[in-house]
Design a protein around this nucleic acid. Structure first.
Length: 286
DNA sequence: GATATTTGACCTCC
DNA sequence: GGAGGTCAAATATC
């Protein structure tokens, strides 16, 4: 695990949220990028394997990873936009309003499959109304928020354990957002069912990058064995690589770096530190 | 020493 | 009573 940030660094004073038009521009460009990645994937599939000296599959895997990263980031940005629209002046209790999740083409895996979301309401532990969003993704870690794991459970009739995360700022900022992740299958890459409950009220998406640290605790870490199955291979989950595995699949890292570059270029959250590439690769995640 | 993760125990709901 | 969700002490990491 990467070095953890001192508490003072992890609790920066909140910078002003980016202007909505800037965020919209980022969303727009990410959408374009996602579409282009899909097109590129289709084009690659049309190229005969022999013409690429057997590297077509590698290229396809890279493009898929890129597409998934783009889609996940789109989802995160869109979620945050809703946050500003819906909760801008509301209390921090979260979960009060419906999470009208924008459907995203997340995943973008071959055949057009990807994140499949649906939003539904359910009752919380104490009867309070909760809104939960469920989607399937191959990159459950790429949503840009800082999640802290608080539990893990073997689920009946499932060979995979369910992982429980809450917002890393649940205490500091009373953010009620939670995330449940459960592997669905042993596909390559495997798909994960991600359940999000409550909206983030912490406004910390991509915000708390330390200016000089080589680490961050911003994003969910799936590098632990807890989420992996014996069948998970190097294609799993784009950025879930441990340090010692990095060299094996550099292409995955590359897609994550591309993603971070996009985010920086649009200044979605201005103080992202370019000098911390490991912020986005497996080694730097938490 | 500070912080995150693990994991068994506990709580609540059905 | 069983299953899912959460808590919190122990442990790991930096």
């Amino acid at each position: 695990m990467a070095r953890r940030l001192p508490k003072s660094e992890r609790s920066p004073s909140l910078p002003p949220p980016p202007p909505s038009d800037q965020r919209d521009a980022a969303i727009q460009e990410l959408s374009k990028g996602s579409e282009l990645a899909t097109q590129l994937m289709a084009q690659l599939e049309l190229i005969p394997e022999r013409e690429l000296d057997g590297r077509r599959d590698d290229a396809l895997a890279n493009v898929r990873s890129l597409s998934m990263s783009l889609s996940s980031s789109l989802y995160a940005l869109r979620s945050e936009r809703r946050e500003h629209h819906n909760c801008g002046s509301s209390s921090s209790s979260g979960g009060a309003g419906p999470a009208a999740v924008t459907s995203v083409s997340g995943g973008g895996r071959g055949g057009g499959s990807g994140a499949r979301n649906k939003t539904k309401r359910r009752r919380g532990k104490h009867g309070e109304e909760l809104t939960e969003t469920v989607f399937i993704t191959t990159t459950p870690e790429n949503d840009g928020f800082h999640w802290r794991k608080y539990g893990e459970k073997k689920i009946l009739d499932s060979e995979f354990r369910k992982l429980y995360y809450r917002c890393g700022y649940s205490d500091e900022r009373k953010c009620q957002a939670k995330k449940y992740v459960q592997q669905e299958n042993n596909k390559h890459p495997p798909e994960f069912r991600v359940t999000l409950t409550n909206e983030h009220t912490c406004n910390t998406l991509f915000q708390d990058q330390p200016s000089s640290s080589s680490t961050n605790s911003q994003v969910l870490d799936f590098t632990k064995a807890s989420i992996s199955s014996p069948l998970m291979d190097s294609h799993v989950g784009a950025t879930i690589l441990k340090k010692e595995e990095e060299e094996e699949v550099p292409s995955i890292d590359e897609s994550s770096r591309i993603m971070s570059t996009i985010m920086r270029n649009y200044g979605a959250y201005g103080d992202y530190d370019e000098s911390s590439p490991q912020s986005w690769n497996g080694a730097g995640w938490q």
